[in-house]
Design a binder for these strands. Sequence first.
DNA 1: ACTGACGGGACCACCCGTTCAT
DNA 2: ATGAACGGGTGGTCCCGTCAGT
Lengths: 198, 198, 198, 198
Amino acid sequence: VQKRSERTRKQITQSALALFAQNGYGSTSVAEICRTAQVSKGAFYHHFKTKQALFVELLETWLAQIDGTLDQSRWEMDDVPQGLMAMANATRGFLRQADESLPMFLEFWSQARLDPAIWNATIAPYRRYQRYFSSMIEDGVAEGSIKKIDPNLGAWVIVCFAVGVLLQCVLDPEGEDWGDISSQGVRVLLDGLARRDS
Amino acid sequence: VQKRSERTRKQITQSALALFAQNGYGSTSVAEICRTAQVSKGAFYHHFKTKQALFVELLETWLAQIDGTLDQSRWEMDDVPQGLMAMANATRGFLRQADESLPMFLEFWSQARLDPAIWNATIAPYRRYQRYFSSMIEDGVAEGSIKKIDPNLGAWVIVCFAVGVLLQCVLDPEGEDWGDISSQGVRVLLDGLARRDS
Amino acid sequence: VQKRSERTRKQITQSALALFAQNGYGSTSVAEICRTAQVSKGAFYHHFKTKQALFVELLETWLAQIDGTLDQSRWEMDDVPQGLMAMANATRGFLRQADESLPMFLEFWSQARLDPAIWNATIAPYRRYQRYFSSMIEDGVAEGSIKKIDPNLGAWVIVCFAVGVLLQCVLDPEGEDWGDISSQGVRVLLDGLARRDS
Amino acid sequence: VQKRSERTRKQITQSALALFAQNGYGSTSVAEICRTAQVSKGAFYHHFKTKQALFVELLETWLAQIDGTLDQSRWEMDDVPQGLMAMANATRGFLRQADESLPMFLEFWSQARLDPAIWNATIAPYRRYQRYFSSMIEDGVAEGSIKKIDPNLGAWVIVCFAVGVLLQCVLDPEGEDWGDISSQGVRVLLDGLARRDS
DNA sequence: ACTGACGGGACCACCCGTTCAT
DNA sequence: ATGAACGGGTGGTCCCGTCAGT
């Protein structure tokens, strides 16, 4: 059956993911991936045109997963600030995969600078998230829970903070409890954004 | 004179900086650096034990510069929030070097994951900055301008936001006016941190 | 029906012919042939034991065609010199296929040097042609239209000239009107071979 | 000293020449060349940017040699036909290198079809030779030793014949005494070109 | 201080032919 | 008879660091 093909493919992607996350994209050779995946080079290049193509596919799978996760929690809120806090808390679990796959972010970012195709795939999501937060802020302003500010800027502030936490978590996973910092940061940001009646 | 030695060294470091920033550390060969610096390989390896050693030196020079910049603005404030805002505004100029040298951050981060020596050099400063902000927050609490929160967490929130802005600025320099976002973000954070009298 | 088998075979041979002629034997991969012929690798290796086997088959088909062409014009002459001229003129049409299939000659020659089997198949015809011309010259001497020379050498001279024109035509199809040169050359050769009564 | 460099370079070119002539360009790997030349790959790629670059250099050296040879015999003739015959006879020695380096011709021709750069270098000389013969024929017409024909065509006839002999000599070095055939052919051609007074 | 030829190793991509299932 | 996954191996290129020589 064609089950075998899929299994091989999955072995490759998983091995690649692990190795890229551990040693970086540049320091991981195709031969190493094949060895880890117990697959021949012929098989590898049958499934992926290039090492980079595999990388891009990993990136896309990855982003699709994240999108899925975010879409879920999108509708579970009554109040905008509550919604944001919920999302911040949901991040905790996400940040715990530190060693496994989070480092891939750094790889994606690095490669994005050098390859336009990867850049597009990497950057696009941020814009999407920003738009999402932007509309949340607008909603918050409408419902009176958030003070009047430029929703675009506000959204970018949130995105930047999130990305910053992510980066720190990748660079220094043992250093701090980044989940705590994420929650705390969002709370502070929300306090700063909150509408205040004198 | 021994001037020649220094000039050679400077040519190498400058060429390397430019090439690393443009094409990345991994994609820049020693030969290319030598070609750009109009220097022979022998000269290169006379001044630097390794490609990595050069990289580390660049990193250290870089960090020293940043420290210098930050130290300047440290004493110019009467009020903690004002001080932070001043620093945020000072960042604007810094973020404008986007194309020239900011991309080096990404390179440093990438390599930090793979090499402990670089990791130490790269991570240490964040801790220093965090401590600095932490003491600022303590001062703020003492002077009554900032509400009571864990100074550690607060400081990390600031660092994360700053790092996030930096990363976005590197990845998408044309996308937004990151200086604006930086200022705006700090303002929101300060509003969130401000002590409020009911 | 078993028609399908033959159609597949023909698609493969035709695609291979075109690709070999265009990119050369060594630079044409089996995968490329299969792609062009819209056939899977399985089908290819079902019909041909090896890439080389296909090549040999192409060679043989090719030679059979040429033999057929030459056999036609063999009997239409009354006079040996006239016969040769007629053949030379007949070549014009042949030389016009320059782009399509003539380049295969060069491929055959190249491979002939490296592979004995191909060598035999490629060289044999020349000897046959030489013998043919040799007997023509003998006839010419007998009928008094050609002066007394070693028919063997004379025949080789003709073959060499023909082969030379062919090679030039393959290498520089746009450069000259090789048909003209062929005719002109044969005329000069005939003048040189003609018996002359002082 | 820099003598070493030249020696290495020469070892590479000589080994390459021998291997290309014996096994063909495509079937000779860089590793094999290095092994034969007792040189490391690093040395190889220090001297030649590419396998092809080495090939082109061989081609150019080769052509320069031939040009040199032809230039020598250019002035040794009183009479055009005699000059041509002298050149034909001089060819004998040239054709005797059959095994050593003549096969390179075939390699050059093969590659010329595939690579424009090589094509230029390979084709250009033929045109030069043709021009040379063309002016010889003009001289011959002027001095009355050659009959009136288009010097261009006549020159191409000579070139084609020469190339044809060369090709045959490469393909079937043992088959015939190609030196003889060359001489004989030129004689016939001269008879055909000779002006004849009735 | 500097030169550049050099060693040796690795890496990505590709390619030919086989195998198993259909 | 055909399709697709696969195996194993090679090929060209490049790159880092060294070392003899200036």
